[in-house]
Structure formats: structure tokens, C-alpha cells
Design a protein around this nucleic acid. Structure first.
Lengths: 221, 221
DNA sequence: ATCTTTATTGTATAATCAACACTATATGAA
DNA sequence: TTCATATAGTGTTGATTATACAATAAAGAT
């Protein structure tokens, strides 16, 4: 029934974060051919007795040192010819970490770097397509789930949350309507604490009541 | 970099249709071990130089003779131990065909049969889980896309469309509100034709203006 | 005090959703 | 030809939700 040597299977991860007023993505520089020296998604081959999710988690940890994050399967890419070494089927994952995140310390020696979603370098393999797929998914999930909240730290101001929505969707939102809607969901707990900055009124901080995934009614517009 | 013999990759398909007042799914009886004689999803190993989508399409055609249908990637299952023969990664697809569909003529000699979603037999491998995943996807997509329309023939009455929504979602819908909403989308073209039945007023038939996938606002409730 | 910067709050209008019941038109039987 | 039956078709009202829009509050720096 098996008609040829099996494809190789990899797990690759599209990791998003927000800092510097930008939606950013983590890429690593390839140290081996093919595409040596080019930027690519972190990822690698599935190990024996390892689930796909575990492989994604392991690869990400090796590159970034990050262990706890939002991680879900994105899509599987398996067109013949997408890897010059031979048949490779890639199960892509989609991940979110709160900003700010220092990512320098990968145990893997590869260079890892955050890139703004708007200004990515030339990418190895079909990784451009995978990233487009991830961006589409992120924007879509923003509308009907609370995943975007994984991009924030434990304590945050409502303005921060609004910023996440604006940066990901690329649309400006009305502050009053945003706050009304978010608060009406009843998923945020206001904290005693405030955050103060230079020359401004201090902002009240909030925390999520739950870390669980929630399905919302379609969100904005 | 490759540490062990590669996993095998299969494409399996969860095919839905509606007839007999039921949401039905196509299963095939396995003629070889493992799970010989048990029911399973149609599918099989990826061929050389064949894309994942092409593999799903080919497997489905071999089992059912169906060529034109709605087909999208569902999810990839790769836990170690899900196939007793060894490591197998399955890319599952999700398919819809209009009813009624005669499916008897698979070129493959395997027995194929439609089963109502509510009364499935014991299934081989982890196919029960895959089917649950597909049902969840179908119900979700019903709410914010027009995919469910792939379950109808070219010409249909509004009652038929409502029936699709009711059978998939398991909820009864108000006839007046349903018709208002569907027609307000402007995606249906009323035909001259009517369909007549015994002892009843004839129903006007409609057709979809487009076959393309459309993203809708969240649909019912 | 005053200036600067960001935080916070409410209202009026429009659009959408949800609940609800009767009339219309065909067939077949009396 | 009338009647019974079965499904098709149609509007209104009240509730909820979405949108548009601008002034005041609190802190730090000078």
C-alpha cells in the first residue's frame, strides 16, 4: 500500500507578539542549506513518540526559551516541491506570547529575531504563505474569540487591550464603544492598582477572570 | 537531523450529506487489518508528487465516484500510537455533497455506506475523534459562512435550506425570521420554477447567485 | 497656577434580532 | 364542487445591540 519512501514531517511555528507599537513575528536565520542564511519560521522534524503539539512546543522552546504560551494548530502544508531536499509535510502552529518578551536565549545556536509583520525579510521555503495564513487566522480569531488576550501580560490597562485589537486588525476603534463592549462581556476583573506614566492621569489595571478560551459573538463590525 | 524512519502520511475525508431527514456521513468497511471489518473514514496514503488536497480528492473519488464537492482541510492528527502499524500522521479533510447522492460505485471494492450522524457504528483508529472535530467545524462554519449551501442541489426551496440549518445545528428556526435573513443577504436568485408536492401549495425554487465561499456575519443566535 | 498628556465617562440614533399567527394555494377525497 | 389537508408564504412590534460623537478628570512637569 505504501508506494514510495514516506514524506518527512516537521512542525513549524508562527509566533506573534506585540511590542514597540507593532505586531511582531519571530524568525530564525538558517545555518544550513537549503536557504542557508535566509530567515525562516522556527521549527523542525517530528521526533519519535512525540505528538505534533509537543514537537511544536519543543521547537519553540529550543529557539526561544519560551514554555508557556497560546499554541494551536494552524494548517498543514504538503505540496510536493516545497522543500528542495525532498517531500516534506509541515504541520504549522500558531502561537501568541505576551509582550514584552526577551527571546534571546535559545539553546539552539541559531540567531532568532523579532520582525514587524509589516516589514518581513525574504523567507525560506513557502514560509511567506504560512505566515499569511497565520495572519488571516489571527485576525479572524480576534473577531470571535478572546485569543488576542494572550498577547497581554497579567495586568494591563484597557488602552493596552484596545491597542492589541487595533494593531492586529489595522483599524482604529472608538474608545468609548470599545470599553463598553469589553466590560459588558464580564470577563475582566478591575484591580486596585493603577499604572502611572509621565504627565498623565494614571490608568486602572485589569486582569482576565479566566485564562480559558472563550467564544464570543462576533466582535467588532 | 532526521532521527528515525519517517511517519507515514494519509489523507482521510469526513464526507457529509443530508438525506432522509438526517445529517449523514460516509464510512467504508475495512477489508484489511488492523481493524478489519470495522467502519472507518475513507482515505489512504499520500502518493508521490501528490498534494494533500489531491490525495483527499483522489481517495474520495476512489471510494464514492464523486468528483465535484466542497473540500477543505480540517485538522492533522499525529499522536503516536493512533495506528497500531506504526507512526501515521493523518491530514483530515472535510467535505460536503448535495443530497441525494448515490455513492455505491466506488472503483475500490470496499463497501461504502452512509450513516446518520446520530447513530454511527464503532469506528477504527481515532476516527471517532476526527468525526467529532468535523462536526464541530461544520456547525461553526454554518454560523458565519455559506458552506452549508454545498449540501443542496442547484435548485431548492427555502424550506430545504432551512432544513439544512436545522439538521446541522440541531435547533428549530423560525420560518419568517429565517427567510427574511437569508433573502436580505442578497445571495439567492428566485427562479420561475416551482416545486409541487401532494396536497400542498407549490414552493418557489431558488438558486445561489454564486458558488464562491462567502463570509457572513454570525448567523443564528 | 498652568500646561500637557492620557484616562474616563454618557447619550441619542440607527440597525438588528426575536417573538409571534394568520392567509394562500395546491391536491385528493367525499 | 366542496371540503379536508398539507405545506408555502408573509409583517409588526418591542428589545437588544451597534454606532457616532465630545467634554471632564487626574497626574506630572514647569
Amino acid at each position: 500500500m505504501i508506494r514510495f519512501e514516506s514524506p518527512k514531517v516537521t512542525a513549524d511555528v508562527v509566533l506573534f507578539s506585540i511590542y514597540n507599537d507593532n505586531l511582531q513575528m519571530l524568525l530564525v536565520k538558517r545555518k544550513n542549506p537549503p536557504f542557508r542564511g535566509q530567515w525562516a519560521l522556527p521549527g523542525g522534524f517530528l521526533e519519535r513518540k512525540e505528538s505534533l503539539l509537543a514537537a511544536a512546543r519543543r521547537e519553540l522552546f529550543e529557539e526561544t526559551g519560551v514554555r508557556h504560551l497560546y499554541l494551536e494548530q494552524l494548517y498543514t502544508f504538503g505540496d510536493p516541491g516545497r522543500d528542495p531536499r525532498g517531500r516534506v509535510v509541515t504541520v504549522a502552529y500558531f502561537a501568541l506570547v505576551p509582550s514584552p518578551l526577551s527571546v534571546s536565549a535559545g539553546s539552539d545556536a541559531r540567531e532568532a529575531k523579532w520582525w514587524p509583520a509589516g516589514g518581513l525579510p525574504k523567507l525560506a521555503f513557502d514560509h511567506k504563505r504560512i505566515i499569511e495564513c497565520a495572519l488571516t487566522r489571527l485576525r479572524a480569531k480576534l473577531e470571535y474569540t478572546n485569543v488576542a488576550w494572550s498577547l497581554l501580560p497579567k495586568k494591563f490597562a484597557l488602552t493596552d487591550l484596545q491597542k492589541v485589537y487595533e494593531l492586529v486588525s489595522g483599524k482604529e476603534l472608538d474608545k468609548r464603544n470599545f470599553r463598553k463592549k469589553i466590560l459588558s462581556l464580564g470577563l475582566l476583573r478591575p484591580l486596585k492598582e493603577r499604572r502611572t506614566g509621565a504627565h498623565q492621569r494614571p490608568a486602572r489595571l485589569y486582569a482576565f477572570k479566566t485564562k480559558k478560551k472563550v467564544e464570543l459573538k462576533r466582535f467588532f463590525k
